[in-house]
Simulated assay, not measured.
Amino acid sequence: MNPLVRRGADPHITRHTDGHYYCTAAVPVCDRVILRRSRTLNGLATAAGS
């Protein structure tokens, strides 16, 4: 189980040159991909997805 992305398939996390961490993952029903952004890596666990 991924502690930062509890639900979602194929999570990918990267740190951009803007200083933010970005996480993409397919939602549980796998019909869309959500993007989360946070200044800290741990913040991705509670960041709102869009």
Rank of each mutant, 00 (worst) to 15 (best):
Val29Trp: 15
Asn42Leu: 11
Ser50Met: 00
Gly19Gln: 07
Ala48Lys: 13
Asp18Cys: 01
His12Ala: 13
Gly8Glu: 02
Thr14Ala: 12
Ala47Thr: 07
Arg32Cys: 08
Val33His: 05
Ala9His: 10
Thr14Tyr: 04
Leu4Tyr: 13
Arg7Cys: 03
Ile13Tyr: 01
Arg7Asn: 12
Arg37Pro: 02
Cys30Asn: 15
His12Glu: 11
Ile13Gln: 02
Leu35Gly: 09
Pro3Gln: 09
Cys23Pro: 05
Ala25Lys: 11
Arg39Ile: 06
Pro3Glu: 03
His12Phe: 09
Ala26Gln: 12
Gly49Glu: 11
Arg7Glu: 14
Leu35His: 11
His16Cys: 14
Asn42Ala: 15
His16Val: 04
Thr14Cys: 06
Thr46Arg: 08
His12Gln: 13
Asn42Tyr: 03
Cys23Leu: 15
Arg7Phe: 10
Ser38Gln: 05
Ala48Ser: 12
Arg36Ser: 03
Arg39Asn: 10
Asp10Ala: 08
Asp10His: 10
Ala45Trp: 04
Pro3Trp: 04
Ala9Arg: 08
His12Trp: 06
Arg36His: 04
Gly8Phe: 02
Val27Pro: 00
Gly49His: 03
Arg37Met: 14
Pro3Ile: 07
Gly19Ser: 03
Ser50Tyr: 00
Ala25Asn: 15
Leu4Pro: 00
Tyr21Gln: 05
Thr17Met: 07
Asp18Val: 01
Ala9Asp: 09
Ile13Glu: 00
Tyr21Leu: 04
Arg7Leu: 10
Gly8Ile: 00
Ala9Pro: 00
Thr14Ile: 13
Arg32Asp: 12
Ser38Arg: 03
Ile34Lys: 07
Arg32Glu: 10
Pro28Tyr: 12
Ser38Leu: 09
Asn42Thr: 12
Arg15Tyr: 01
Ala47Tyr: 00
Arg36Ala: 02
Thr46Met: 02
Arg6Ile: 09
Ile34Arg: 08
Thr24Met: 15
His16Gly: 10
Gly8Trp: 02
Ile13Trp: 02
Pro11Ile: 03
Thr14Lys: 06
Asn2Val: 00
Val33Gln: 08
Thr40His: 12
Pro11His: 06
Thr46Trp: 04
Arg6Met: 08
Thr40Gly: 10
Arg6Gly: 12
Val27Ile: 14
Ala45Arg: 14
Arg32Tyr: 09
Tyr21Glu: 08
Pro28Cys: 13
Pro11Ala: 01
Arg32Leu: 06
Ala25Gln: 14
Arg36Ile: 03
Pro28Arg: 11
Ala25Ile: 04
Tyr22Asp: 02
Thr46Glu: 06
Arg15Pro: 00
Thr17Ala: 14
Cys23Ile: 07
Ile13Met: 05
Leu41Asp: 05
His20Arg: 13
Asn42Lys: 13
Tyr21Lys: 05
Tyr21Cys: 06
Ser50Pro: 04
Pro28Asn: 11
Asp31Gln: 09
His16Arg: 12
Asn42Asp: 14
Ala45Pro: 03
Ala9Asn: 09
Leu41Met: 10
Thr24His: 09
Arg37Thr: 14
Ala25Arg: 15
Asn2Ser: 13
Leu35Gln: 10
Arg32Thr: 12
